[in-house]
Design a protein around this nucleic acid. Structure first.
Lengths: 247, 247
DNA sequence: ATCTACGGATTGTTCAACAATTCTTCGATT
DNA sequence: AATCGAAGAATTGTTGAACAATCCGTAGAT
C-alpha cells in the first residue's frame, strides 16, 4: 500500500457528463430519482473532500507533491476540476501552491506550530471563558466520554478524533459560525502533521485527564479556572509538539 | 456611471497566451523584459484582485450577481479563469456560490453582523491585552495619526482605511501570520456592506477619540484598560451597525 | 387561475490544444 | 574533471469550444 492506487476509484457522482460523446439532443428523459433540495455537492467539492480525507488519513504526507494529471486520471475527473479543488484546499491551507511548480501538501515549520497554537489560545481560551449554553457544555462532556471510550478500546484514531471534537466543542460554546470554521481549519491543519506524533501511544492518552478536569471546571461554572487549565494545557501541548518536530 | 463598463479594461498581464491563434512554434524569442524573482501573480489572482477592488470600492453591491460570461468578456479572460477567481473570493467569504445559480456578492444578515463582531472581540481584545513589541505599538500609533490626517482632509475613504489599519495593527501586535490573515478577511467582509453606513460623515469620525484613548492606554502599558476600552468600542460599534442595517 | 411543457440563459464539467515555466539531461567549453 | 549552458521532457497556466444539467420566465393546455 504505497500511495497511489489506494482505496478509491472514481468519485461516484450523479452523471459523468462526458465532453464529446453524443451530439443528439435527448432532452426528454427526466430522471425520476433525486429530487432532494439539499446536498448537491459539485464534483470539485467531492474531489476536494476526497483529498481532504486522504490528507487526514495520512495517506498524503506533508511536502508530497500533488500532480494535476495524476489526480485527474485517478479520480476520473477533468484537470480543470482538480484545479478548482486545489483552490479550495489551498484556501484552507492544507496545500500550498508554488506558481508554475505545482501544489504540495502543506508542511508546518517550527514557526507555524507556534502560530497555530497562538490562534488556538486566542480562540479556545476565550470561548471557554464565555461559558456557553447547557447543550454546548453537554457537547464538551460528550467529547470527553468519547475520548474515554476510545482509550478503553485502544483506538488511536478515535482518540485523536475525540480530542479534536473536544476542542471543537469548546469553540462551539461561543456559538459563532465563523469561529467554528476557523477552528475547524486549524484543527485540520494540525492533523496534517500529527501522524508522526501519533505513534507515541501515550501522546493523546495523557490528555484525557486534562480534558476531564477542564470539563469539570466548565460544568461547575468555574470559567476562569477552566480557561487557565486550558491555557496551561495548550502551552504544554505546544511544547511537546515543538519537541517532537525537529525544531 | 452605472456599474458595468466602469474603469477597467483588461487585466494587463505579461502575455495574452491565446488558445488557438497560431500553430507555428516560435519558441526562439525570449523576451528580455521581466526577470524578477518575486511578484508573478497568476491571471486568476489578478482577476480576483480586480474583483476584490471593485468589491471594496462599493462598485459591486451586496446581493449583486456576478455572471461568469460577463466578467470573462469584460476582463478579457477565459470563463475558466474567472471561475478560479470566484473560488478564491468564495473562500474569503466575499462572494457566495449558489449551486447552478451563480455567485453573488455576499450580504451579511443581522446574525452575521454579530458573528463578525464576535470574532473581532475574540481576536482584537486578546491581541491588545498581549501588548506586543514597540514597533507594533508604533504601528498602532501611526494608524491613529493616519486617521487624524484623513479627518483633517475630510477624506471619507481614507478615514475608513485608517480605521481598518488601526484594528489591523492591533491584531498584528500578536505577531501571528494566521491571525493577521483572519483579521484581514473579516475586515474585508465588513467593508463589503459598510458603504451604506459610510454616508454618515460622523460615523468613523466619532471613533477617532476612541482610537486615541485606546492607543494611549496601550502605549502606557495599561493593557487591561486598553482591552476594556477596545471591548466597549466594539460593542458600541456593533450596536450602531445593527441599528443601521435593517436588523 | 393553476399547472405543465417549452426555450432561453447560465452554470458545471469535460476535452484538447498551446504558451510559459521549471526540471532534467546531456554535451561543449575553459 | 568540474562548470556552464543549451536541447528536451514534464508540468503548470490559460484558453476556447462543446455539451449536460439546471434554473427561470413564458406561453399553452386543462
Amino acid at each position: 500500500m504505497t500511495s497511489s492506487e489506494a482505496g478509491f476509484r472514481g468519485i461516484s457522482g450523479p452523471t459523468p457528463a462526458g465532453g464529446k460523446k453524443a451530439a443528439g439532443t435527448a432532452g426528454a428523459a427526466l430522471g425520476a430519482a433525486a429530487r432532494l433540495r439539499v446536498a448537491i455537492p459539485s464534483v470539485a467539492d467531492r474531489v476536494a473532500a476526497e483529498l481532504r480525507l486522504q490528507l487526514a488519513e495520512g495517506l498524503l504526507l506533508p511536502g508530497a507533491r500533488l500532480t494535476e494529471s495524476t489526480i485527474s486520471e485517478e479520480l476520473g475527473v477533468s484537470r480543470n476540476t482538480v484545479r478548482e479543488a486545489f483552490a479550495e484546499l489551498a484556501a484552507e491551507r492544507l496545500v500550498v501552491r508554488h506558481p508554475n511548480r505545482g501544489v504540495f501538501v502543506a508542511s508546518l515549520g517550527p514557526g507555524d506550530i507556534h502560530d497555530v497554537y497562538t490562534v488556538r489560545r486566542f480562540i479556545e481560551v476565550n470561548a471557554i471563558r464565555g461559558g456557553g449554553s447547557p447543550e454546548g457544555v453537554a457537547a464538551v462532556r460528550a467529547a470527553v466520554e468519547e475520548g474515554r471510550a476510545a482509550a478503553a478500546a485502544d483506538d488511536e484514531e478515535a482518540l485523536g478524533s475525540a480530542n479534536q471534537h473536544f476542542h471543537g466543542a469548546i469553540v462551539a460554546l461561543a456559538g459563532s459560525r465563523r469561529l467554528n470554521t476557523i477552528m475547524a481549519q486549524v484543527l485540520a491543519e494540525m492533523r496534517l502533521f500529527f501522524h508522526k506524533a501519533t505513534v507515541d501511544a501515550h501522546f493523546y492518552g495523557s490528555y484525557l485527564d486534562d480534558n476531564e478536569e477542564i470539563c469539570k471546571a466548565l460544568e461547575a461554572g468555574e470559567l476562569n479556572r477552566a480557561g487557565n487549565l486550558l491555557l496551561a494545557y495548550l502551552d504544554r501541548s505546544e511544547e511537546k509538539q515543538s519537541a517532537v518536530h525537529g525544531d
